[in-house]
Amino acid sequence: MINVATYYDNLANQGQLHEVPRSDQRDTELVIGQVTKGELKNLYDHQMLPRNKSAREIYDNLRSAAPGGRCPTCGFGHVYTIDHFLPKSAFPFFSVLPENLVPSCRDCNTGKMARAANDAQSFHPYYDVGPLMQEQWIFAEVLRTVPISVRYFVQAPLHWNQLLALRAANHFRDYKIASRFGVEAASELSALIHYFISPPMQPHEIQDTLDRRLRAERQHQCNSWKIALFEALRDCAWFCSLEF
């Protein structure tokens, strides 16, 4: 099991967890020594989740480690549970490996798509702090619809290699970032429009307001739905001119 943990750490550091083979054995089959696949999977449910078990302390420490109680995967959801980055059903060796257990909001944990892609893994909150927290790759554009709407999309930095760009696209898809960010943006956009038109503000005033909001938000992260929204609105000439 120690060797398995080292194997996970080495691949995660290289962004290559998608190369880990899935366990296709039945739950009753032995997979390591005299331990079955089912027993490995059940370690988490039987030893880490119950509050009367000593390993529960590890679970609680991991869940409380998320800064501000925010889900590190999406950046805005409240941490609700622990998510297996590689699902324990397909990768039972990692069922209780702390490196594979990530604080998660309910949406990221229960609504994610299949993650063990053959081409690239999504970003790992423990191993990919740089791409997740230090470089912007999620952007938005303002759509001249009725009512006004926003579309989120991925645009990888030019210096990223093909693997990093692919991982960003997978992360965006796997966690349904576009639709979830869009829901948050719709409410904020409605409030902003009301603020800007009552009474009507000048374009430069609107841009200054958005720029201040943007700078404040960037102090905390770089890929939030607010950053992409404020940036898109600030740079949209017809929006700042209230031509809608």
Rank of each mutant, 00 (worst) to 15 (best):
T110M: 07
F172V: 03
D128A: 03
I193Q: 08
S198W: 15
D27R: 15
T6I: 14
S179P: 02
V4L: 05
Q25D: 14
D119L: 06
Y195R: 05
T81C: 03
V129T: 08
L101A: 04
M113A: 12
V4F: 12
R215S: 06
I148H: 02
P50N: 04
E141H: 11
R70D: 00
P131G: 02
Q121D: 10
H171R: 03
H171M: 04
D24E: 13
S149D: 08
P157L: 11
H84Y: 15
H78D: 15
T73S: 06
R151L: 09
E141S: 10
K176L: 14
A116H: 14
M113F: 06
W160M: 02
S187A: 07
T209Q: 12
E57C: 08
E99S: 04
Q34E: 07
G75L: 10
Q202P: 02
V150K: 05
F85S: 05
I206M: 09
Q155V: 11
M133S: 07
V183W: 11
N3A: 11
P103C: 13
M133A: 07
L158M: 10
V35Q: 10
E57D: 09
V102T: 08
S104K: 03
A90L: 05
A228G: 08
N3D: 15
R218M: 00
L17V: 04
M201G: 04
R115Q: 11
E135P: 13
N10A: 07
G69Y: 02
A165H: 02
R51Q: 13
Q16S: 12
L43V: 00
M133E: 11
F123P: 06
L189G: 07
P131H: 02
L189N: 15
K176F: 06
V129W: 02
P98F: 01
L30R: 14
Q219F: 03
V35A: 09
W137T: 05
C240N: 11
Q221W: 07
L101G: 01
T145S: 12
R173I: 01
V146W: 06
H84V: 01
Y59F: 14
I32L: 14
Q202M: 08
L242K: 09
S104Q: 01
Y7G: 01
R151P: 09
I138R: 00
R151T: 10
I32T: 10
R218G: 01
D211E: 12
A165F: 06
N42Y: 09
P131F: 01
A12R: 13
H78M: 04
D24G: 13
S241C: 12
R234S: 10
D128C: 08
M113S: 09
A178K: 04
G33T: 10
A156Y: 06
V154I: 07
R213G: 12
Y152D: 02
R144A: 09
A216I: 02
D45E: 01
G77R: 05
M133R: 08
T36P: 10
R26K: 14
E217H: 08
P157Y: 12
A165S: 14
A185H: 14
W137D: 02
S198L: 12
L163D: 12
Y152C: 05
P92N: 00
S122T: 10
L43Y: 07
Y152A: 03
G15D: 03
Q221N: 13
A186L: 01
V154M: 14
E29Y: 04
S23K: 14
P157G: 10
G77K: 10
F94W: 04
M48R: 01
F123L: 05
D174H: 08
L158S: 15
T81E: 05
S149F: 02
R173Q: 06
